[in-house]
């Protein structure tokens, strides 16, 4: 079974402006999914310092912060800033918000604390939020933390195969769900646990 969550439309014929599309998948499940719509009821994460590396060695910087929210399909599609239509060989970003931003006070836009990605009882952005229900358990992952040793922000570097088409960045949820089922169903504060799950999630992104 291959399930692409809240699929946003990808127009592969659109060649003039390269775009980046985030997507999440659950593949060939060993988890018994009782109700597909509830396995993942919420999936939001921050993508910051997004850059495209071109084949001639240029680095194209995009907006500093994006909030990817799978309940809002338009947030999954990012227009690349590539005015000279250079060929892209890699995409890199941080999953989450860095320490400096975390200690620099209130910001607007994607970082506005009304977005539901900021803790109130303790300062800090929630880098990654995923909620839902597996076989018989609700799970809540609110992963964040900016101060050592609980800094949860992760760097992601991915190769881009076809440099002309839109870049599809995929987060396979299968591994994460397995991990959640086996160990952690409730993670909602900065901790070593949050850091290790964040590492796992960051390393599972791939491009197509």
């Amino acid at each position: 079974m291959r399930l692409v969550l809240l699929f946003a439309f990808l127009n592969s014929l659109h060649l003039t402006a390269q775009r980046i599309l985030f997507s999440a998948e659950i593949e060939d499940s060993t988890i018994e999914i009782l109700d597909e719509s509830n396995v993942v009821s919420k999936l939001m994460f921050y993508v910051s310092d997004l850059q495209l590396e071109t084949k001639d060695g240029d680095v194209l910087k995009m907006a500093p912060y994006y909030l990817i929210d799978f309940s809002n399909s338009s947030s999954l599609l990012l227009e690349a800033i590539n005015p000279n239509k250079k060929e892209v060989k890699a995409i890199q970003f941080k999953l989450g918000i860095d320490s400096i931003t975390n200690v620099s006070g209130a910001f607007g836009g994607a970082l506005d604390p009304t977005k539901g990605m900021y803790w109130s009882w303790q300062s800090g952005y929630i880098n990654f939020k995923m909620e839902g229900k597996t076989v018989n358990e609700n799970y809540i992952l609110h992963l964040g933390g900016y101060a050592s040793p609980f800094s949860a922000v992760q760097k992601v570097v991915l190769p881009v195969g076809d440099s002309i088409k839109d870049i599809l960045v995929i987060l396979p949820l299968q591994e994460i769900l397995k991990e959640i089922l086996s160990k952690h169903t409730m993670v909602m504060s900065p901790s070593l646990e949050a850091v290790s799950i964040s590492e796992k999630i960051a390393s599972s992104f791939y491009t197509r």
């Binding site: 200690v103 620099s104 006070g105 209130a106 604390p113 900021y118 109130s120 300062s123 800090g124």
Partner: peptide, 16 residues
């Protein structure tokens, strides 16, 4: 010291 900036201080009592 749970709050790291004056801007965010009000969030804590507001939602407690």
């Amino acid at each position: 010291g749970a709050i790291n900036h004056l801007d965010f201080q009000a969030l804590a009592p507001l939602s407690s």
